[in-house]
Design a protein around this nucleic acid. Sequence first.
DNA 1: AAAAAGATAGATCGATCTGTCTATTTCTCC
DNA 2: GGAGAAATAGACAGATCGATCTATCTTTTT
Lengths: 180, 180
Amino acid sequence: MKKKTGDPKQRLLETATTLFYNQGYHATGINQVIEEAGVARASLYLHYESKESLLLAFLHQRHIDWMGGLKSYTAEVSKTKEKIAAAFDFLFDNNEKEHFRGCAFLNILSETTDKDTAVLNVIQDHKKDLRAFLADILTNEKQAVKDHVYLLFESAIVESQLYRNQWPVQEAKKMALGLL
Amino acid sequence: MKKKTGDPKQRLLETATTLFYNQGYHATGINQVIEEAGVARASLYLHYESKESLLLAFLHQRHIDWMGGLKSYTAEVSKTKEKIAAAFDFLFDNNEKEHFRGCAFLNILSETTDKDTAVLNVIQDHKKDLRAFLADILTNEKQAVKDHVYLLFESAIVESQLYRNQWPVQEAKKMALGLL
DNA sequence: AAAAAGATAGATCGATCTGTCTATTTCTCC
DNA sequence: GGAGAAATAGACAGATCGATCTATCTTTTT
């Protein structure tokens, strides 16, 4: 039993977020979640009907938080190039804060098969939102440039997780700005 | 019990390859491996000292096979641009053959924490090899171009897995060739 | 043919898994 | 202060986890 702030439902979500994100979905047992959340087993199933629904709640919340962070970074500047730069800076700071654990959605994607349609849909929707958001910033650019920046953005996330290093973010940022 | 060709050790490796790659490491139990390989439980621990060492054997073999495939694709042409194009075509064909399961190493990476140093090292070494291989093809290009192609190559793999679609490979291929 | 090595099935271990249930306590709201 | 909802601890279910062990059978080597 560890944390005791907030109501049980929120504590469960926070704990599941930490554990699913940092050690993976299948590697995390329900016992560890309730133990670290300081919540009774029955309370978990009172608020979430299954482990998978807890996963979906985590992904849903993560989408809101992560996109919110990205938007607040890009909102602080006005020019297109500055906004793209700010987006990469957001990745940089996230890597520092989360110790290079990469994208929560892509990590879960790796543990997902075609049978998990609900999970797969949430992941794809998140990335579609991100892609649309970047395309919106790049509204005056050609489609090829929009796609290009998106692909660099994604590889910046994945590769910095892989190498536990910021260089992919820095390099991808330069490349993306060079396209504009 | 399913397959019965080859010796037990090879059958175990083949089965582990299929299962770890398609449904993930933690989602795959040792029971399923031995059952589908048609091998006795004791035989597994005769050849591999643990589940993790079976994972390492899988990654090692996968590295050889995957790089071998990539090299045979690029070896069929002579010009730099053709070789890069062939590399992306390799990804395309792999997606068809493996039903968009993406990169085995990045998938395992998602299930890996900093504690799993042996696994992490194999994954990083694989990517370093890939990166060096691409850099070698692009030997007359600037470092920035080498990095750029590598990052596009990586996102082509990840994003086609995400969308279960070849468009990221096709787009990344065009972008990469446009840099040369 | 004898000896050594390889492979087998299956019992067993303690731990963990997701999920259900009961019975008790705590909290909230009127 | 009393009713009803929320939360608790913990037993329990049945399955599976990774790993060890024994005892038997088959294959290879000498």
